[in-house]
Design a protein around this nucleic acid. Sequence first.
DNA 1: CTGTTAGCGCCTTCAA
DNA 2: TTGAAGGCGCTAACAG
Lengths: 347, 347
Amino acid sequence: MVITERQTTLNDVASRAGVSPATVSRVLNGNYPVATSTRDRVLEAVRHYDYVLNVHARALIHAQSGILGVILADVSDPFFSEVARGVQSVTAQTDLLAVICNTGSDPDQELKYLNLLRTHRADAVILVGAGSEHPRIQGELVRHAEGLARQGSLLVFCGRPLPGGTTAAGAVDVDNHGATELAMVHLARLGHRRILYLAGPPANTTTTARLAGALGAAKKRRIARRDVTVRAGDLSRRSGQELVEEALSEGLDFTAVLASNDLMAIGALVALRRAGIGVPDQVSVVGIDDIPIAADVTPALTTVRLPMEEMGAAAAKLAVQERMPGSRSAPPVQLIERESAAPARTD
Amino acid sequence: MVITERQTTLNDVASRAGVSPATVSRVLNGNYPVATSTRDRVLEAVRHYDYVLNVHARALIHAQSGILGVILADVSDPFFSEVARGVQSVTAQTDLLAVICNTGSDPDQELKYLNLLRTHRADAVILVGAGSEHPRIQGELVRHAEGLARQGSLLVFCGRPLPGGTTAAGAVDVDNHGATELAMVHLARLGHRRILYLAGPPANTTTTARLAGALGAAKKRRIARRDVTVRAGDLSRRSGQELVEEALSEGLDFTAVLASNDLMAIGALVALRRAGIGVPDQVSVVGIDDIPIAADVTPALTTVRLPMEEMGAAAAKLAVQERMPGSRSAPPVQLIERESAAPARTD
DNA sequence: CTGTTAGCGCCTTCAA
DNA sequence: TTGAAGGCGCTAACAG
């Protein structure tokens, strides 16, 4: 039914105001002198029609759209929503529209969004968090980085390494390796020697970096490789819980759980509580990220703070201000001692 | 430095393939017969240049952009991120780009985004959660709803009432009133007679509806109006904590806290724990929303489940499928009994 | 200070 | 099955 009437255009406004379309354009953009009386007539006409500019027509000329793409795994994961917030804290002061795309951790979905964003002539695109290490994916990423650069846009890798061979992209580094290292050293100092490590999904840049950090630190602190058990999950709370339940039912012997993100650490807390195992008296738990709720669970989670919001803001600044390949470092990671980790029991 | 080369266009592809631009357009859109051999040459040229279509040029013709706007207060609030996830679960199966805009609960920011989205010829816009009750804002909302309708687009109110006088918008209703009612009745049944109610910001549709639900239920259960103390916060965890700390320091007498959202309820839990007050033995706490972490705090939060993800999905379906005024109801709210509420102490 | 003109990249008739 | 031509709404020269 809806007979869509033609939208009101600059021309409509112009004829009502009795001026040329160019003049209307000038008052709207305001970067050109226009007589006050004419401006007033134009503005009256704009209000009369409730006229709003058509970005597409303008984008056709400038080859820019005012869109900043943000590609991440899942908005409802606090890690990502904090980063997204950081991004939006900088776009809010501009006319940029931050477009948040959820991939559900699917690399192909990521590629699809990249293409879609390219199609929209996004002024820049930020890729947040872990990425696939698969060569095909990495290759496609490089292709898109170059394509975006050719469009005068920029691809920014936020919290994941630049794929080898890209010079066309920007990056905001975060010390994933150092984060787990810090956590593992902390546990070692507390006397823990048998550790359950909850890793993320395989073939994933962050999983790899965090695992390497943990294992490297364990080695340095003389914890035998066979005493750290690595189990892979999907970074969800549920997955952390299941992993620990399995370990428990297998009778695995450990005095500490090091989860590669806070969500899994919280899952671990739940599993331990249900099994009647005291935290931190019997088992210590340490997470990574320091998402807001980490402070509110019981016992409050000891974790390593990653500067999530700052990462987002830094990536956004790189994207909107510099608009050319470069890199920034996020602030250093930091151990946050709360209640879930304590000296190992000596039984 | 970056000398932005002209982007590759349909014409470039056409000349490399030795065909007319019209033909390229036809193979790209695929809704028109093209000889297989020509199609192959065209596709080769597309790949050769890594050509991607320009949405703006197309939008200029179709007056549609493939953008679905989602305006909400804060992505990092679990309530909103769950709704956003629901929206994206439906857009993921389409070529629509969901654009998430954070207003920080500022109605003027909301209006600004609405305008920006209109400028982008968004196919539809979803307004999530509470809105201002201020007449000026409501009037502007109506204006935008009509403007969007005129553009062949649609404004959908998700979880907030339609402003009076709009017929140009869609709506997904959620029973805010019923939610607090349920919670209050639950507390009354448990024998609580002196209640601290943690409300949201004033002049806000959700605050009003939830408060009315709570107060109405209290009255029905014969709880005197003076026995329910209402304090207004900003829906953050911190605010819930502060409100309870204040109440405690004033020596306010209450046996239960009813928070108008889970985040504030969690803040209340923290304040109570710090004050050495046992939950639920000495004071019961009930929240509203049932955000994912509600189950993971200690004690696990008793709350009323709002179908957040379903609301988002329903709104998105309304927006993309029907594209015309109408309304859907979200599933009913539901009391989730966990550990934070128990019979009132009888001292 | 203001009007005229010529496209930006694509799609859609209309012809061939 | 394909090509040619016009125009979507706006802005950036270029005149005046």
